[in-house]
Design a protein around this nucleic acid. Structure first.
Lengths: 240, 240
DNA sequence: CGCGTCATTGATGTGCATCAAGTGGTGTGG
DNA sequence: CCACACCACTTGATGCACATCAATGACGCG
């Protein structure tokens, strides 16, 4: 069983500025510590939760990298997001008390389990926590608007450029390089997220390399010209 | 100014089972009545709120029909949803205290204005309301997952079939026909939502008509074969 | 070292976009 | 009340971006 319980503590967690509201006093922080009952380790390739599973908790990612995906009856599936440390996962389960997507660890990961009833209970008493929960959900809605824009009206190059910029920006927030990243997902998973086939993803990376915008060595990406990527996203190709 | 204040009352509203939790007692209902301070009328073509506008309230649609859309700097825009009576609009504004999309009335409409700070305050005290707010937001997240699936992996016919089925199902919930509907949006707006050009939407409708699946008279749609539409969505074309 | 997985690259096909012309319904002003 | 203009829609001809099919190459793990 991949469920290893470990005592957790938000107050000493170096990710607290990512997944908690700022400006909590000591008493509030102590109470929040009581929400995160346990941590849970998830091995690479393993499911954190799956479509149809009963919903009970949200998960804050401590380490590791996840993808979430939805599927149709006829076997197609769509990656709906990639999540990294400090991000919250599982919001889809609240409506129907069951999860409606799969969450798979793309590398060995550890999450903080937050029972949702506890979270609701405490956010009735701690105003900043309540507001934080609302913002987390609203942020997810806005993020998905962006993905819809991307899927609905961008071309392959624009999609991939936006994807790389988004990833590197989120990694940068977490103290990593602003110009270098290691992809934790396959070309196929990128393609699924972006509504493209893996060959198209690969070709588009190659095109960026030819143009001197990035270096690609397998899953290692080095951005040589961030502005060029931004211009591509904003549909200002060429040099006029 | 299109802001006409009218005293509102949830307790007597015939939409309350759509936009409020069920099983409220009298006292709770009374308190909820105090949230919805005013109603606001929005003329066809007018904005309820726009991208960049300061966020203060959520809106419950009483009558009418809205679209929401996001835009890029370079002028592309993407319809992110169509909303009808009983649905909540404005959730995108919570994260950054500013709206990140436009909401346009597609027909004369009336909304209940719910100041968000009041809503948070009351949901700290009324548990079922708190949970309801969470479910509304989660539902929106799940809905968008569905749109991502549609945009990322479906073909034109599948997208349009899914769209029509979704619309008619929601209308049916509101007491309208399960097989007939009047589109409140143009082909172009449908196309924007589905990631297609208006010509493709038109051609696809024509194809459905040829196949005897629907009747189309301008914006009047009559579904002749619901199962055929469902088969198209589920990628079971032909007759095998 | 050999096999499986993931990635790259090329050749060809196709679904939808684009461009363009024409139709019908609606509203307006003479 | 009719003529005109405008807009949404339909339909056809053509082009292109990306999918599909297929072969080969590069890691990494047992």
């Amino acid at each position: 069983m991949n469920l290893q319980a470990i005592k957790a503590s938000c107050s000493t967690c170096n990710l607290r500025e990512l997944c908690l509201p700022i400006g909590l006093n000591e008493e509030q922080m102590e109470r929040i510590d009581t929400i995160v009952a346990v941590r849970r380790k998830v091995k690479r390739g393993a499911l954190l939760f799956h479509n149809g599973e009963a919903f009970s908790s949200l998960y804050a990612i401590r380490t590791g990298f996840f993808k979430t995906s939805v599927a149709t009856e006829d076997g197609r599936d769509q990656v709906t997001g990639f999540q990294m440390a400090g991000e919250i996962i599982g919001l889809d389960g609240i409506v129907n008390d069951h999860h409606t997507c799969d969450a798979v660890a793309l590398e060995d990961a550890e999450v903080c389990v937050m029972p949702f009833d506890k979270l609701e209970e405490l956010s009735r008493e701690v105003t900043v926590l309540q507001n934080h929960v609302h913002k987390v959900m609203s942020r997810e809605i806005v993020r998905e608007h962006g993905v819809m824009l991307l899927l609905g009206s961008m071309r392959a190059e624009e999609r991939l450029a936006a994807f790389v910029l988004n990833l590197v920006q989120r990694l940068h927030t977490r103290g990593f390089s602003a110009s270098e990243l290691v992809l934790r997902m396959t070309r196929e998973e990128i393609g699924s997220y972006l509504g493209l086939k893996l060959e198209t993803v690969s070709r588009t990376f190659s095109k960026f390399v030819e143009e001197g915008i990035v270096e690609v060595k397998q899953r290692h990406i080095r951005i040589l010209d961030t502005d060029a990527l931004k211009r591509i996203v904003n549909n200002q190709h060429g040099c006029e």
